[in-house]
Design a protein around this nucleic acid. Structure first.
Lengths: 197, 197
DNA sequence: CGAATTCTGCACCGATTGATGTAAAAAGGA
DNA sequence: TCCTTTTTACATCAATCGGTGCAGAATTCG
């Protein structure tokens, strides 16, 4: 009944996500974006309304995939809780190593966006807060599990420990963007595990 | 012999520092800056060459004052090393609490700049790396001290522990910008101390 | 009081920003 | 095949960006 789209929406969102991830929101122009996407601006505006809406879609996609990945690791009851958390750190290390460009990591889109926009854009701030909460819940559950089974010795409140692990992960992202190498970031994770045992 | 300046250079640098701190480098326009400074653009360009040079001066000023503060705490040999690190965390908490605006912290200019520019501006990346190294050295020394005196039980390499503490601090900044309250951030710091004892 | 020199205020520059309008192109339904 | 509908390509918009040029104001030195 009408002319069909020449692009796949999910594929466009993936590319947009990577572009925003690498360059940030403000310093990614819609022209840069369209060049990366191989699309005309009118097509993008027609499909995604405006830059901010497109970013929110890309951010949502990032959180849906990445956080789901992390939650899957944390909810795997076949492993002792402490091993699940170790696996979570390993996952962070692995993606951070894979995304390194000229000695600097890309960090994580949610952390990057928290720094750039959370204080200035309440709606995006809320999206990020919800995503953090989702990860905290999963982390807390795993930690409570580990405390019960004895493989996590710390008697601190599971939610506090979860916030700690989350903060360390953010710190690892910052270190990666500052140019820290794999071994350094791995050592940060290993040391953080000491606080749980 | 010539018309004198109508402003104090250090005072201007302080205001510029705060403006960049609150809004980031890219999204602080030279016009915003000049309004905050109460100066005309030509005066600023005349005194500081261009926006990037002004930012570098402001960043240097921030690092000189803030890092010096932290180093002073860490080098105070009248306290046991573990207490010095506790005092360092307390200092972070205090400034983070003081700088909160509508529920979001300002974080730290060096962390913010690392996220925004370190990967894209090698010279600024180097300035940040040097500042980090300076803090790591002071941290390492204090930690080595604590290991010798027995108040730090962890047998990990002091440099590794220093990087860990540094990463946790960065994580606390991120949490603050994400809207975490004082108690949450304090708990992160307290948990990090567990990894040292 | 001039002369020399620097700083300030204002206008202006080209480039780039996010966003829109318009007309042709591409498909399906009758 | 023609009509309807959506997408596409291209031009263009006002606003803002960092940066500059220039004339006048303000100061010290002679």
């Amino acid at each position: 009944m009408a002319r069909p789209r020449s692009f796949d929406e999910d594929q466009v969102l993936d590319t947009a996500m990577c572009t925003f991830w690498a360059n940030g929101y403000e310093s990614t122009s819609t022209r840069d974006l369209c060049q990366a996407l191989g699309l005309d601006r009118s097509s993008v505006y027609n499909a995604f309304t405006n830059k901010r809406e497109l970013f929110k879609r890309a951010l949502t996609r990032y959180m849906d995939t990445t956080t789901a990945d992390q939650v899957r690791i944390l909810d795997n009851h076949e492993l002792p809780a402490i091993e699940r958390i170790r696996a979570l750190f390993a996952k962070i290390l692995q993606t951070e190593a894979a995304n390194r460009r000229d000695g600097h990591g890309l960090g994580c889109l949610t952390v990057n966006t928290t720094m750039e926009l959370a204080g200035r854009d309440p709606e995006i701030g809320l999206m990020l807060a919800r995503d953090t909460e989702r990860r905290i819940i999963s982390l807390s559950a795993a930690i409570r599990c580990g405390q019960r089974d004895g493989d996590i010795g710390s008697t601190r409140d599971p939610a506090e420990l979860a916030r700690f692990v989350n903060a360390v992960i953010a710190g690892m992202r910052v270190a990666a963007q500052g140019g820290a190498d794999d071994a350094t970031i791995a050592a940060i994770a290993a040391t953080a595990m000491d606080a749980l045992a």
